[in-house]
Structure formats: structure tokens, C-alpha cells
Write a protein that binds this DNA or RNA. Structure first.
Lengths: 347, 347
DNA sequence: CTGAAAGCGCTTACAG
DNA sequence: CTGAAAGCGCTTACAG
């Protein structure tokens, strides 16, 4: 609870000398004085007050991790294993750089702008962006550098970190095609509203077209989220006369719901229904059969976003950059090889 | 970016009048003035600077959510579905009360104390406490109200929110006994170091003793965490000559790992190995068979902790309270009824 | 190498 | 009902 003033008094120097010691301005303070002041600070367990520092220096070392509120409840977001992990890595990386992280759920862009001003936040990170309108609004009106994960807009200068989602959709679909599948469906929380899902969808379509195949309207499942969404897809599939033999799902939990729902409706998985997921998050290893999925390196993704953010905080002209990270297919057991009645894959 | 000074100048009043308008001190400012000032603030989108406010008022409205770093990596903590959900609810509840939440991973109590002083944090919440030594140190040296989830020490004044863990362990075990099981094992991340797990273990033992049964050293699995831990348990079980027919696991993910590991080693689940989990978190519904588990109301738990915290922030004498929340058994399909060869449970 | 002074944006007694 | 003044803990030019 001691202040810079107390330290200065005890050391018999001015407060500005103490300040210089704190900031290691060696040019401005003699080694002997520095040493003495440092000892006194240690003895008093002196901790600088960030409020005072922030008030005068205009930066706070606070980074906001922004969590959009979906469907009225803020709590669900960290339940999502992918988001939880991403936020965990972000905290770890930011802390290493001596920054503080505030997690803030929000519904409207205005709330974020207010928050940013309230604390003079140095930067912001948006994960799991929901509605386009709000996200665009935020990007355009943000008063501090903002990095957006998993969404981009070509017509807006912005900092984004995405996967090579087109390749992801393509790779998942291509893999199914190579295993002999010709009737392949696609399931996503929202096919047409998110750039990322749109890209995965385009990848899916382009893989199909390489085989001169087309999708079928019935095989497109839009607006399905998490396990419940997947189970709804399974229900729809079970009712279908001309059923696909495989589904590309844009989220592991969704893929798991499909697998589980199909099993519970008497289908064999993967024999009767193959599924490829996305993310390689915790549920992928939990489900039976273990999920074949498009994996991403979440730690690297977090690190890339943090890099962009710090670059932007140092350089006011750096306000438009799009990082596109690699994906890779992780083969497990959720895809049936229908060319010959062999097992899907072993791993 | 406008300040209270700008607003005051434009309104032709003193800054203190503006301050009174902001704080709704109706006794100290005429309605007409208040109205005029309010309009000007709205037009300028005036947002008070918390750093300045905090500097002078000694409180910050910041609550720290403290995440202990396990095994060197900070990121894993939010991966845990229970923790992720708890943190999500905490953020939601604190935000409703107009508080800001900083998530901070830490390794030593000192880091937390420094952090608290740095930002003059009003309160702190510790989830997922790890080592007793560090946790006790923190409790004793904290300079602001601290609420601890899922751990308590009887010899220390502290604020804690736990489950009725003894009842939880008892209920899980008793349920297995009633289904005819007589050889029942127990698996936990750490049986002897955590008060919570110790309570569950006591509950387990007391249910056994009601049936005049004892546990066996081989059937106690200590130090097993998450799915990998569960798979290690399954491996050990598969090698065992005198194997238990059921396991009480103190964490859903651990329970899932046991189920999955047993399946992969050729056992039938639940026929050859029954499992009861703890938490009723997301994995419980994902695994096949769906997990019978001791459920807790995480939202209520979060709310109880927040209540304690605010009580403590308002009343400096409130520094010792232990909330014990109810549990309930959720019957699903992971327990086999071995009295007659019927199915375990239907739901 | 060291210090006195001004000031960041706000609130809190104290006067009127 | 309204204001002038002091000050929270710190940093930033400016002098010496």
C-alpha cells in the first residue's frame, strides 16, 4: 500500500528519481541510488498503481477479449471447447507480454466502445463473432486495434485470423470422395452468414465439382449448432428416402451429435453414415467412433492474433491484415471406406 | 474522448456539478441543469475514465478470476468444460452487477497479490485451486475479499463454495450398491490433497460400510486426470485379476476415459464395467453409453460465489462462510444392473 | 545524475 | 443548488 512518495521520502530522493528507477532509466539515475531505491521498494513490497499510470500515459496494458452473447446467455461461450481453449491460450500469451486481459461479453458494438474508453484499453480481440451487422459495426467504430478471429470482410480494413477454410472444406470433402462417397451432405450453424463457413462450403462444392457431382438441397443442413443440432440432423437423415452416405460438419460437436443421433436411430456408424468434423477439439476423441476431423493449431492461431494485435498497437498504419492458417486432416474412425467393405481408417 | 472538464465548460457549470449529474446526486443539482448536462454528455458520448475514478476512490470495480496454472500450461484450464462454464457464468453475473472481470492465470500467491494491488481489485475468485500450499498462502495473504470454489480449509477463515461432496460420493456409491455392485473402485485426480475429493472419498467409504464392504487398495486410482487418466485406469483394470465391477470417478471426463478405454480393450460397457461420473458437464452426454453422473447446478454455484463476494465487499467482518450446494444423481446408461441381467437404467 | 512543477481525469470535503 | 480547491499516484517535459 506504499506509494512512490513514501519510497522517495525514505530514500531521500525525489519521486521522479524513484519513477526512473522503476522504469530502468539507467541514464537518469546513478547505480548507487538505483540500488538503494530498489531495496526500499522491495522491503515495502511496493507495487505501482496502474490506474495512476494509465491516467497519465493513456495506455492501460489491458486487452479486451470480447465474447459475443449468443441467444441471450453469456455463459455458453466458454463451454464451447474450441473457444475455451482459444481464450486460454490468449490469456497465456498476453500475460507473457505483461498485459492484462479483461473478458467481456457483449451484445452491441456500443457496449464495447464504452468499455474500451472506460479503461482506455490498448487493444481488443473478438472471438466467435456472431451477427455480421454487429461485427462490422464494431470493426468500423473501434477506437483501439481490434483483431477478429474466424471472420473477415473483404470490403473493410481489418485484422483477422482465419484458417484456410476453403481448403478445409475441400480437404474434408475430397477425403470422403476418395473413400468412395458420392452422396455427401454439409451441416453448419449458418451457411450463408459467415465468411468462414461460406469458404468451407465453397471448398465442399469445388471438391464435388471435381468429381462432377452436385449437392442436393436436402443434404444441406443450415442453422444447426452443437450436439443438439447434430442430433436434429440425424433425425432428419433418418427420415430421408434418398439419404447421403456422409456429412461434412463445420464443428466437432455438431459432427458428434450427428454420429450419436444416427447411432441412437439404429444406423451403424460409420458404415451407414460417415462424418468429418472441424477443429479437432476435445469431443473428437471422446465420441465413438473417434472423429475424423479437420484440425487446426489453436495455439498458433492465438499467437498469430496476438502478434497482429501488438503490431497494430505499435504501428498506427497497420490496420489491414489477414492471416490464413493451415489446416490438416486427422484421420480417425468416423469415415467408412465404401469402395470395398474395409474399415474406414485406422489410427 | 471528451472529459468531464469539456462537458462542464460547454454546459457552463463546474466539473463538480457534472460529477454530481453522473452520480445522480439529485439533491445537489437542479433538474434543469442535470437535464442540460446529460444532453451534452450524450452528444459527446462522454464515458467516465475508470482509471481516474479508481485512483481517487480506491476501488476499481474489477474482480479477478484466478486460474491456477497446472502442469506448466495456462491454456488447458478453460478447456475443462466445467471450469469454462463456471467462468462463463461468473462473467455474466459480475457484468450484470456492473463489474469488470480480469482473468489471470498464476503460479504463485505473490503474483496474485501484486496483481490485486496493481489494479486495486475489489475482489477475487479462485476456481480450480491446485496445490494446497499456494491456495492456503493466497487465502491468508489476500488483501481483498477472496472466494474459493471447490476447496475449503477448516482451520482458516475463508469464503468457499463447495458441493455436498460427501453426499455426492455417497450417492454415487450407494446407487451402484443398489444396482447390485459389490466391488466398487474410486478414481480421482488426487484423493488425499483436496478437501473436496477427500469428502467424496469419505462418502464412498461410508456407503460401502453400510453394506459392510471395504475397498481394496488396487481399486483406488489416484492422480488420474481427464480422458487420458481414465484411459490409464482402463488399462490397469484390463490387467487386473480381481477387477471391480464399477468405478466412481470424480470428474466426467475421467469417467468418459474409463468407459472409452474399457471399450477399446474389449470390455462391454456398462456390462463389464459400470461408471458413475461427477459434474454432468458436456462430455457426459457425448459418450456412449451416456454417463450416469452426480450433477451440480453450475449457474447456482456461480451465483452463490458472487453473492458471497459482494457480501464480503460490503461488510469487512464477513470473511468466513462456507456454502454447500446440493447435488443430484442423473441416471443415464453407464451403470449395469447386475442383480438381474436387465439394462442399467433408461432415460 | 537529480529535482520542482505541472497535470492526467476525476471525487471529496468544505464553503457559500 | 453551485463552485473553488485540494489531491489520488504517477509521468513528462523542463531546468539545472
Amino acid at each position: 500500500m506504499s506509494t512512490i512518495k513514501d519510497i522517495a521520502a525514505e530514500a531521500g530522493v525525489s519521486v521522479m528519481t524513484v519513477s526512473n528507477v522503476i522504469h530502468n532509466n539507467y541514464a537518469r539515475v546513478s547505480p548507487a541510488t538505483a540500488q538503494r531505491v530498489r531495496e526500499i521498494m522491495a522491503r515495502h513490497q511496493y507495487v505501482p498503481n496502474m490506474a495512476a499510470r494509465s491516467l497519465i500515459s493513456k495506455f492501460s496494458h489491458i486487452i479486451a477479449v470480447l465474447l459475443p452473447v449468443w441467444h441471450g446467455s453469456a455463459a455458453s461461450m466458454l463451454l464451447d471447447p474450441y473457444t475455451g481453449q482459444l481464450v486460454g491460450y490468449l490469456e497465456e500469451l498476453l500475460r507473457e507480454k505483461q498485459y492484462y486481459v479483461m473478458v467481456c461479453s457483449f451484445q452491441q458494438a456500443d457496449e464495447v466502445l464504452t468499455l474500451q474508453q472506460t479503461w482506455q484499453m490498448d487493444g481488443m480481440i473478438l472471438v466467435l463473432p456472431h451477427e455480421d451487422a454487429i461485427t462490422r459495426d464494431l470493426i468500423q467504430r473501434a477506437q483501439a486495434p481490434l483483431v477478429v478471429f474466424d471472420r473477415y470482410y473483404e470490403d473493410l480494413p481489418m485484422l483477422s485470423v482465419c484458417l484456410n477454410d476453403r481448403l478445409g472444406g475441400y480437404t474434408a470433402t475430397r477425403y470422403l470422395l476418395e473413400k468412395g462417397h458420392r452422396k455427401i451432405g454439409f451441416a453448419a450453424p449458418t451457411i450463408y452468414e459467415s465468411s468462414v463457413i461460406q469458404d468451407r462450403f465453397q471448398g465442399y462444392l469445388s471438391a464435388l465439382s471435381e468429381y462432377h457431382l452436385q449437392t442436393k438441397k436436402d443434404w444441406l443442413f443450415d442453422g444447426v449448432v452443437h450436439q443438439e443440432g447434430g442430433e436434429a440432423v440425424a433425425h432428419a437423415l433418418s427420415q430421408m428416402s434418398d439419404r447421403p452416405t456422409a456429412i461434412v460438419a463445420t464443428e466437432d460437436l455438431l459432427a458428434c451429435g450427428i454420429l450419436k443421433g444416427c447411432q441412437e436411430r439404429g444406423m451403424q456408424v460409420p458404415e451407414d453414415m460417415s462424418v468429418v468434423g472441424f477443429d479437432d477439439s476435445m469431443p473428437a476423441q471422446l465420441i465413438t467412433p473417434r472423429l475424423t476431423t479437420i484440425a487446426q493449431d489453436i495455439r498458433q492461431k492465438a499467437a498469430t492474433g496476438v502478434q497482429q494485435l501488438f503490431h497494430a498497437m505499435e504501428d498506427a498504419t497497420y490496420r489491414n491484415a489477414h492471416a490464413v492458417l493451415d489446416i490438416r486432416l486427422v484421420e480417425r474412425q468416423s469415415v467408412w471406406d465404401i469402395r470395398h467393405a474395409g474399415a474406414g481408417a485406422d489410427s
